[in-house]
């Protein structure tokens, strides 16, 4: 922290040791998931707590894909997550643009309403939602999940999009409008290309959130062919709780999409989180 003096060597070494510990803590559970998933079934018990599998196999992944319903769960989850991400991003982009570019009466109230949705126990609405959805005959449909997830995710996505729009000077749109654009043209030709990273980050964030939602999916879906990944995996676990290798292989499948998205979007999230938190 001092301006010129180099910190002592001992200090630097202990810093790296601590960082390594953090890293080990962060990655070990995921490593274990991967390890069991590539261990042949017959060795799972004998290998036990060994850090490294003595034999390596992809059989578990193969049987998950061929002999279980996980492909259906996967397909359902992809559909729900992409649907939610696309719908949420469109709505949030419009709302974020309004927050970023306009001063209007009631702005604070609307922001307040959106913040409140991030605060109260969503469990309180689980019973009414169940009854409304079943009353509409939409139980067991993926559409109902998309609608509910979109509503949950719009507020944070809106704040995220707003911070991206705030980063684009208003002058650019005005210049475009003077150059002959309508507002829509200005947004399409100037603002949109500059917000692409922001849109991608929002898409990724919402995708991940929808991908991992569990409670509403359990509540609103009960037939096997409509289950999303979390529900499917959980059902699988409670039904066949001994097929460790296959479960962990399925877990790895569930992990991959959100990790890919995360690595791509993490630096944008810092921006969104910071401005969101400061505004609160």
């Amino acid at each position: 922290m001092s301006v010129f003096a180099k910190p002592a060597v001992g200090w630097t070494i202990s810093k790296y040791i601590v960082l390594a510990l953090y890293l080990a803590f962060a990655l070990f559970p995921l490593y274990w998931l991967l390890k069991i998933s590539v261990t042949p079934e017959k060795l799972i018990y004998s290998d036990g707590v060994a850090l490294w599998p003595s034999e390596f196999t992809l059989d578990n992944f193969k049987s998950v894909l061929l002999y279980t319903d996980f492909l259906i769960y996967f397909k359902n989850s992809i559909f729900v997550s992409f649907g939610t991400a696309a719908l949420t991003t469109v709505l949030a982009a419009a709302a974020g643009y309004a927050f970023s570019r306009f001063q209007f009466r009631g702005k604070k109230i609307i922001i307040g309403i959106m913040l409140i949705t991030q605060m109260f126990p969503l469990l309180i609405i689980i019973a009414p939602i169940y009854r409304i959805i079943s009353g509409m005959g939409l139980l067991n449909t993926l559409t109902s999940l998309i609608v509910v997830y979109t509503a949950f995710n719009v507020p944070f996505a809106t704040f995220l999009m707003q911070s991206f729009f705030d980063g684009i000077p208003k002058d650019l749109e005005e210049a475009a409008m003077i150059d002959g654009c309508t507002r829509l043209q200005a947004v399409r030709k100037v603002v949109f290309p500059l917000t692409l990273p922001g849109l991608a980050a929002t898409l990724g964030f919402v995708f991940t959130a929808a991908w991992s939602e569990l409670l509403f999916a359990i509540m609103l879906i009960n037939s096997n062919d409509k289950m999303t990944f979390p529900v499917g995996l959980l059902t699988f676990v409670s039904k066949f709780s001994v097929d460790w290798g296959q479960m962990m292989a399925a877990g790895v499948f569930a992990l991959v999409p959100s990790c890919l998205f995360f690595i791509f979007i993490q630096r944008y999230l810092v921006q969104g989180l910071t401005s969101g938190a400061v505004k609160g």
Partner: peptide, 22 residues
Amino acid sequence: FQALIFLPWAVPTFLSALTWAW
């Protein structure tokens, strides 16, 4: 390093729960 160490946050919560239970 940061992308790796922040990774737990990206893991779907149901999967984190299962992994830890295991």
